[in-house]
Simulated assay, not measured.
Amino acid sequence: MGGMIAQEVVSLIPERIKHLILAGTGPRGGKGIDQVTRVTNKFMVQAFFTGKNVKEYLFFTRTPRGKHPPRHT
Rank of each mutant, 00 (worst) to 15 (best):
M1N: 11
G2K: 03
G2N: 07
G2C: 10
G3Q: 03
G3P: 05
M4L: 13
I5S: 06
I5L: 12
A6S: 06
A6L: 04
Q7S: 10
Q7H: 05
Q7W: 07
E8T: 06
E8N: 05
V9S: 00
V9G: 00
S11N: 07
L12M: 07
L12W: 01
I13W: 04
R16L: 06
R16Y: 07
I17L: 03
K18P: 00
H19W: 11
H19C: 05
H19S: 05
L20V: 04
I21H: 10
L22V: 03
G24S: 09
G24A: 04
G26I: 07
G26W: 05
G26C: 07
P27L: 06
G29Q: 01
G29Y: 00
G30V: 00
K31A: 15
K31Q: 08
G32K: 00
Q35G: 06
V36H: 05
V36K: 06
V36A: 13
R38D: 09
R38Y: 09
V39N: 10
T40V: 12
N41Q: 14
F43S: 05
F43H: 15
M44S: 13
V45M: 07
V45T: 14
Q46S: 11
Q46I: 09
A47K: 04
A47S: 09
F48R: 14
F48H: 14
T50R: 06
T50F: 06
G51E: 01
G51R: 03
K52A: 08
K52Y: 08
K52C: 12
K52H: 12
K52W: 09
N53D: 15
N53K: 11
V54A: 15
K55D: 15
E56I: 03
E56M: 02
L58R: 04
F59P: 04
F59W: 13
F59T: 01
F60S: 07
T61L: 09
T61V: 08
R62M: 11
R62A: 15
R62C: 07
P64C: 02
P64L: 02
R65Y: 11
R65C: 09
G66K: 03
G66Y: 02
H68V: 10
H68Y: 09
P69A: 02
P70Q: 02
P70R: 03
R71C: 10
R71A: 11
R71K: 14
H72G: 11
H72F: 11
T73L: 08
